[in-house]
């Protein structure tokens, strides 16, 4: 589904990604771990089409189509979803209106009719129940004054609404309390199928107890330096990153 080949990217003079290769197939869950500043958020932003970064080499394919030149919204229309590490506050636009616009624009781009208002309400009700979100929340301005955890939960609510093909969850677990983590992880698992794929970026094993990855990758200094099964996450939890850094420097 997602195929990244030798991806190099920089911002200004600074090279951040230094040759990333990643293959994600439908039905898989991948976890990306790695120390602060390694380039995890950069990688996810670039997959989503953030134009602040310059891709200097390499390609990104989604279902065998090169998407590197597409605008962020075009990638979204093809089913790419990024749960932001720091969701943005949009004062004056309610969660409901935002979702309505996002869904209908996506449908329009895919040659579908707008979603009828009653159906929209039904879906909103269903998905907000799935993530145990209070209805009052949905009429508030998007992310404005939301707590850290509320913002993250709201991201996954949006994911549930949009039903993406490829979801990248950038540190969705940070800021969530233990109950919220369970609710959110549970929501993600419900959305999982053999037709879609999920990439979770996290610092903690805890999330991976709920959302169990098929593969774990370590991103360090702009490169994927190690890949393995879910046991790699346990090893990192125990030993930290020093051994990996040492391996790299050796």
């Amino acid at each position: 589904m997602l195929s990244i080949k030798n991806l190099h990217a920089s911002i200004g003079d600074k090279e951040i990604l230094k040759g990333i290769n990643l293959e994600v197939k439908a039905g898989e869950i991948h976890a990306i771990m790695g120390p602060n500043g390694a380039g995890k958020s950069t990688l996810s932003a670039i997959i989503a089409g953030n134009e602040n970064y310059e891709v200097t080499q390499g390609e990104i394919f989604l279902d065998n189509e090169d998407i590197s030149e597409l605008a962020p919204e075009e990638r979204a229309h093809k089913g790419v979803f990024l749960s932001f590490q720091y969701p943005v506050e949009i004062p004056g636009v309610s969660v409901t209106n935002f979702m309505r616009t996002a869904i209908n624009e996506t449908r329009k781009a895919n040659g579908q009719e707008e979603m009828p208002a009653n159906e929209m309400l039904k879906v909103i009700r269903e998905k907000s129940e799935l993530l145990e979100i209070d209805r009052k929340f949905l009429s508030r301005s998007l992310n404005e004054g939301f707590s850290g955890g509320e913002k993250k939960r709201n991201e996954i609510f949006q994911m549930a609404m949009l039903e993406p093909k490829l979801a990248i969850l950038d540190e969705t677990d940070s800021g969530l309390d233990i109950d919220a983590l369970r609710i959110v992880a549970n929501g993600v698992n419900k959305l999982k199928s053999d037709k879609n794929a999920i990439v979770v970026i996290t610092h903690y094993q805890r999330l991976l107890d709920y959302i169990v990855p098929d593969f774990v990758h370590v991103l360090y200094n702009g490169k994927i330096v190690k890949s393995g099964g879910k046991e790699l996450a346990h090893e990192l939890e125990e030993k930290g990153y020093d051994w990996i850094k040492q391996e790299q420097e050796a």
């Binding site: 989503a48 953030n50 919204e73 990024l82 943005v88 935002f98 869904i103 949009l162």
Partner: peptide, 15 residues
């Protein structure tokens, strides 16, 4: 706000 623009575009809302 460019971050806000990217956020909205990421959700499928054209520029």
């Amino acid at each position: 706000d460019e971050t806000a623009m990217f956020y909205m575009q990421q959700r499928g809302i054209p520029k």
